[in-house]
Simulated assay, not measured.
Amino acid sequence: MDANIRTPAGDALTDLILDLFRVNNLILTWGDRLVAPLGLTSARWQILGAIVAADRPQPVAWLARDLGANRQNVQRIVNDLAAEGLVRFEPNPHHRRAQLVVLTDRGQQTFDDAISFYDPRVNALADGLPLEDIRMAGRVMKALRKKFEGDENAGDQT
Protein backbone atom coordinates (compact mmCIF):
# COMPACT_ATOMS: atom_id res chain seq x y z
CA MET A 1 0.00 0.00 0.00
CA ASP A 2 1.26 3.47 -0.88
CA ALA A 3 2.26 5.25 2.33
CA ASN A 4 0.92 8.54 0.92
CA ILE A 5 -2.63 7.27 0.43
CA ARG A 6 -4.85 7.76 3.45
CA THR A 7 -7.18 4.95 4.44
CA PRO A 8 -10.84 5.65 5.16
CA ALA A 9 -10.02 5.29 8.86
CA GLY A 10 -7.11 7.71 8.41
CA ASP A 11 -9.46 10.22 6.73
CA ALA A 12 -11.99 9.87 9.54
CA LEU A 13 -9.30 10.28 12.17
CA THR A 14 -7.93 13.36 10.36
CA ASP A 15 -11.41 14.91 10.43
CA LEU A 16 -11.64 14.08 14.14
CA ILE A 17 -8.21 15.57 14.87
CA LEU A 18 -9.08 18.79 13.03
CA ASP A 19 -12.34 19.02 14.99
CA LEU A 20 -10.43 18.36 18.22
CA PHE A 21 -8.10 21.28 17.46
CA ARG A 22 -11.10 23.56 16.94
CA VAL A 23 -12.98 22.25 19.97
CA ASN A 24 -9.87 22.54 22.16
CA ASN A 25 -9.54 26.21 21.25
CA LEU A 26 -13.24 26.78 21.89
CA ILE A 27 -13.05 24.98 25.25
CA LEU A 28 -10.07 27.09 26.34
CA THR A 29 -11.87 30.30 25.39
CA TRP A 30 -15.05 29.10 27.12
CA GLY A 31 -13.07 28.14 30.23
CA ASP A 32 -11.22 31.47 30.27
CA ARG A 33 -14.53 33.34 30.22
CA LEU A 34 -16.06 31.04 32.82
CA VAL A 35 -13.35 31.52 35.45
CA ALA A 36 -12.25 35.08 34.60
CA PRO A 37 -14.36 36.50 37.48
CA LEU A 38 -12.17 34.42 39.82
CA GLY A 39 -8.94 35.81 38.37
CA LEU A 40 -8.19 32.48 36.69
CA THR A 41 -7.51 31.30 33.17
CA SER A 42 -8.22 27.83 31.82
CA ALA A 43 -4.55 26.97 32.29
CA ARG A 44 -4.50 28.07 35.93
CA TRP A 45 -7.79 26.29 36.60
CA GLN A 46 -6.45 23.12 34.98
CA ILE A 47 -3.40 23.14 37.25
CA LEU A 48 -5.52 23.75 40.34
CA GLY A 49 -7.61 20.77 39.23
CA ALA A 50 -4.54 18.58 38.85
CA ILE A 51 -3.45 19.50 42.37
CA VAL A 52 -6.92 18.69 43.72
CA ALA A 53 -7.04 15.39 41.78
CA ALA A 54 -3.65 14.19 43.04
CA ASP A 55 -3.82 11.80 45.97
CA ARG A 56 -0.99 13.67 47.69
CA PRO A 57 1.12 16.80 47.15
CA GLN A 58 3.31 16.52 44.06
CA PRO A 59 6.26 18.40 42.57
CA VAL A 60 5.72 20.46 39.44
CA ALA A 61 7.30 17.79 37.21
CA TRP A 62 4.70 15.24 38.30
CA LEU A 63 1.85 17.69 37.78
CA ALA A 64 3.17 18.41 34.30
CA ARG A 65 3.41 14.70 33.53
CA ASP A 66 -0.15 14.09 34.73
CA LEU A 67 -1.40 16.95 32.56
CA GLY A 68 0.68 15.94 29.55
CA ALA A 69 2.14 19.44 29.64
CA ASN A 70 5.54 21.06 29.44
CA ARG A 71 7.22 21.25 32.88
CA GLN A 72 8.50 24.79 32.32
CA ASN A 73 5.02 26.07 31.43
CA VAL A 74 3.51 24.39 34.48
CA GLN A 75 6.28 25.83 36.68
CA ARG A 76 5.57 29.34 35.41
CA ILE A 77 1.85 29.01 36.11
CA VAL A 78 2.44 27.43 39.54
CA ASN A 79 4.77 30.33 40.38
CA ASP A 80 2.00 32.76 39.39
CA LEU A 81 -0.51 30.83 41.52
CA ALA A 82 1.91 30.96 44.46
CA ALA A 83 2.36 34.72 44.03
CA GLU A 84 -1.42 35.08 44.22
CA GLY A 85 -1.63 32.94 47.35
CA LEU A 86 -3.53 30.06 45.73
CA VAL A 87 -0.75 27.50 46.21
CA ARG A 88 2.31 27.22 48.38
CA PHE A 89 5.48 25.17 48.23
CA GLU A 90 6.41 22.65 50.90
CA PRO A 91 9.64 20.72 51.37
CA ASN A 92 9.78 17.39 49.58
CA PRO A 93 11.23 14.71 51.86
CA HIS A 94 12.29 12.71 48.79
CA HIS A 95 13.98 15.47 46.82
CA ARG A 96 15.68 18.59 48.12
CA ARG A 97 15.08 20.81 45.07
CA ALA A 98 11.70 19.59 43.80
CA GLN A 99 9.32 21.17 46.27
CA LEU A 100 5.77 19.92 46.65
CA VAL A 101 2.88 22.08 45.43
CA VAL A 102 -0.02 22.40 47.88
CA LEU A 103 -3.29 24.32 47.60
CA THR A 104 -3.87 27.03 50.16
CA ASP A 105 -7.32 27.48 51.69
CA ARG A 106 -7.82 30.36 49.28
CA GLY A 107 -6.77 28.13 46.37
CA GLN A 108 -9.23 25.42 47.41
CA GLN A 109 -12.02 28.01 47.70
CA THR A 110 -11.17 29.44 44.28
CA PHE A 111 -11.22 25.95 42.76
CA ASP A 112 -14.54 25.17 44.46
CA ASP A 113 -15.97 28.43 43.12
CA ALA A 114 -14.80 27.53 39.61
CA ILE A 115 -16.53 24.18 39.87
CA SER A 116 -19.74 25.87 41.04
CA PHE A 117 -19.62 27.96 37.82
CA TYR A 118 -18.74 24.91 35.72
CA ASP A 119 -21.28 22.32 36.86
CA PRO A 120 -24.48 23.98 35.61
CA ARG A 121 -22.81 24.97 32.35
CA VAL A 122 -21.40 21.54 31.61
CA ASN A 123 -24.80 20.03 32.39
CA ALA A 124 -26.35 22.44 29.87
CA LEU A 125 -23.73 21.49 27.27
CA ALA A 126 -24.47 17.80 27.82
CA ASP A 127 -28.21 18.35 27.45
CA GLY A 128 -29.46 16.67 24.30
CA LEU A 129 -26.29 14.63 23.73
CA PRO A 130 -26.89 10.90 24.21
CA LEU A 131 -24.97 9.65 27.24
CA GLU A 132 -23.63 6.65 25.32
CA ASP A 133 -22.27 8.98 22.61
CA ILE A 134 -20.45 11.01 25.25
CA ARG A 135 -19.01 7.84 26.77
CA MET A 136 -17.97 6.53 23.34
CA ALA A 137 -16.22 9.81 22.53
CA GLY A 138 -14.40 9.50 25.86
CA ARG A 139 -13.28 5.97 25.02
CA VAL A 140 -11.96 7.09 21.63
CA MET A 141 -10.10 10.00 23.25
CA LYS A 142 -8.54 7.70 25.86
CA ALA A 143 -7.47 5.19 23.19
CA LEU A 144 -5.86 7.97 21.12
CA ARG A 145 -4.14 9.38 24.19
CA LYS A 146 -2.70 5.95 25.04
CA LYS A 147 -1.38 5.59 21.50
CA PHE A 148 0.28 8.99 21.62
CA GLU A 149 1.64 8.49 25.14
CA GLY A 150 3.00 5.06 24.25
CA ASP A 151 4.90 6.26 21.20
CA GLU A 152 6.31 9.74 20.72
CA ASN A 153 6.15 9.05 16.98
CA ALA A 154 2.65 7.57 17.09
CA GLY A 155 1.92 5.84 13.85
CA ASP A 156 5.35 6.40 12.26
CA GLN A 157 6.11 3.70 9.70
CA THR A 158 9.68 4.84 9.06
Rank of each mutant, 00 (worst) to 15 (best):
G138K: 10
A61L: 08
Q58E: 15
Q109N: 10
M1C: 02
L67D: 08
L16R: 02
L28F: 06
T104S: 05
L100R: 03
P130R: 13
R33Y: 02
D2L: 04
L26P: 00
A43T: 07
Q109L: 13
R44S: 15
T110W: 11
T29S: 10
D80W: 00
V35K: 00
P93Y: 04
D127I: 00
A54G: 06
M141P: 00
Q72N: 09
Y118L: 15
A9L: 13
D66T: 02
L100E: 02
M1A: 07
V74Y: 04
A54E: 07
W30H: 03
S116E: 08
V122W: 10
L103Q: 09
G31V: 01
E90C: 05
G138E: 15
N24W: 14
V140E: 06
V78W: 04
D151G: 09
T110C: 14
A36E: 09
F111G: 03
L34V: 03
I134F: 06
N79V: 06
N73P: 02
G68C: 06
G39F: 03
Q109D: 13
L13Y: 09
L144Y: 11
L13D: 00
R135Q: 14
Q72W: 14
R139P: 03
D105L: 10
P59N: 09
D55C: 05
R97N: 07
N24G: 01
D15I: 11
A9P: 01
V23M: 08
T158G: 08
R139C: 08
I51N: 05
G107E: 05
V87P: 01
P59K: 06
Q108V: 08
T104A: 04
L38R: 01
Q108D: 13
L26N: 05
N4M: 11
I5T: 05
P57E: 12
L144V: 12
G150E: 07
A114D: 00
T158A: 10
A82W: 01
